[in-house]
Amino acid sequence: MEARKTDNIAQAIKALPYRKAPAGFSARVVARIAAQAETPWQELLLEQAGLLVAGWSGLLVSGAAWLAWEYWARLAAALLEPGGFTHLAGLAGAHAALAADKLAEWISFAARLLPGLPPWYETAAATLACSLIIVALRSGEGTRSALNVSK
C-alpha cells in the first residue's frame, strides 16, 4: 500500500506538465543581456564615485562611533555638570576652528605644490586606467559569484 502511494507520487510528479513561459520570454532575456553589456560609461563613473563616497562615509562614521564609544563616560559626566553643555559646545567650536585652520593651511600647501604636479590629462588618464582595472576586476568577480558553483 505504502509502496503504491510512493509510486503514485513519482508518476504524478513525472506527469506534471511544464508551465509555459510568458510570451516574449526569450526576447526579454536577450534584451537584458544586451542592456547589461552596454552599461554607459556615465553609469560606471557614477558607480565609482558612489563607492568612493560610501567608503569615506563609512570611515567617518566608524571614526565618530569609535570616539563616542571611547569618551562617552567623560562626555556624559561633562554634560551633567552645570554649564557643561555650553563648555562642550565651546570646546567643539574651538576644535572646529582649529580643523578649519589646518584645512586652510593644507589647501595653501597643496596650491604651492600644484605647479610641480603632472598635467591634468596625465592625472585623468591615470584615474581612468585605475577605474578600468577596478571595473574589470569587479566584473570578473561578478561572473564567479553568478555561478556560485564549485564543480
Binding site: A21, F25, V29, I33, Q36, G142, T143, A146, L147
Partner: peptide
Amino acid sequence: IYSFALRLLRNPAAAEEAAQEAFVKAFRA
C-alpha cells in the same frame, strides 16, 4: 526553468523574474 521557479516561488511574476535572472547569469558565466 520557469516551471521549476514557479513551483518553488508560487508567484508567476517572481518566477519569471527568477527564470530570466538565471538565464542572464548563465550567459555571463
